[in-house]
Design a binder for these strands. Structure first.
Lengths: 157, 157
DNA sequence: GGATATGGCACTAAAATGATGCTGTTTCCG
DNA sequence: CGGAAACAGCATCATTTTAGTGCCATATCC
């Protein structure tokens, strides 16, 4: 439904929390307790982020996780990829239709348009750092302009 | 998994096909046959688009669907909303947590950031017309810039 | 050596999705 | 008139994905 999974959600909660305490080692227990979320599930997400190299873990009694990188260096796209894979907006892209022989091609009228949507979304996430998720300038804009001949991602590309 | 549903995919296929034949009435059979997709499922998607006012239907032997509006007037966001609802990137947003009492608030560190992501994606879709999905200027851009202090949607808002 | 962490699987239950069945209504055409 | 073709509306069922846990191993501190 065009929605992040719980795993991603939990991972983001953990990352933001850890970023607030840059450098410190914080346990899953503490984070889960703070936000009243499943300790186990949060743990699974942080494990995944650790395997992806975004976190470093410390075992043992006073163990826990800490950021492996500065918040400026972590892209949202990297986080999402670690927790639920890269988004593939159409089945064409997940099913390896190209190699398997997509029976819609070469007539498929949506594939490249959808790919543009996907790439635009992905690029947004690539350009959004964990830092940007923490800071809260948030002055969300006015009404979108009327949708006449607007191209998809009109950023001079 | 941050992915459109099949219903949306089929709906987009139908819309693009119908836009190619602006004004003409085209049957589900023909569209499904062209792209070798499920006639029934495609039919369900087009029914939904019809209920949403994006298509007009004509019953009977030579019946089918045609666009109710010009491709320039239809936003991708409208299409997606009709076929799978507005995207809610976190469960906070679907569960009506605010009224029900989100037990993560007021500590939830991700809610507003995620909302910004969601709004940015949604705005992209609002600004993308069906026309833009048809036209294929497609000169997809170079490498994304390094992700230092980039804000989410730096469009002068 | 016991308590408290993470690490790594594997498994089950619930929810979302994909696909289809059935019946009714409208329209064309012979 | 009556049958065929096409949409309308629901409802059902199978599959896939997701959410949530269980279990045990390993590491660390005290």
């Amino acid at each position: 439904m065009l929605q992040f999974t719980k795993s991603t959600e939990y991972g983001l909660i953990g990352l933001v929390h850890l970023a607030d305490r840059r450098g410190e080692v914080v346990s899953v227990r503490e984070i889960a307790g703070t936000y009243k979320i499943s300790r186990r599930h949060l743990g699974e997400s942080l494990k995944a982020l650790c395997r992806a190299g975004l976190l470093k873990s410390q075992r043992g009694v006073h163990g826990g996780y800490r950021l492996a990188l500065e918040p400026e260096q972590v892209a949202l796209s990297t986080i999402v990829a670690a927790l639920e894979g890269e988004p593939a907006l159409t089945s064409c892209e997940t099913d390896h239709a190209e190699s398997a022989g997509c029976h819609v091609e070469p007539h498929c009228p949506i594939r490249s348009p959808i790919q543009r949507i996907r790439q635009g979304l992905w690029r947004q996430m690539e350009q959004t750092s964990l830092r940007a998720l923490i800071d809260e300038p948030l002055a969300l804009p006015g009404a979108p302009s009327p949708i006449e001949h607007l191209n998809l991602f009109p950023r001079g590309n």
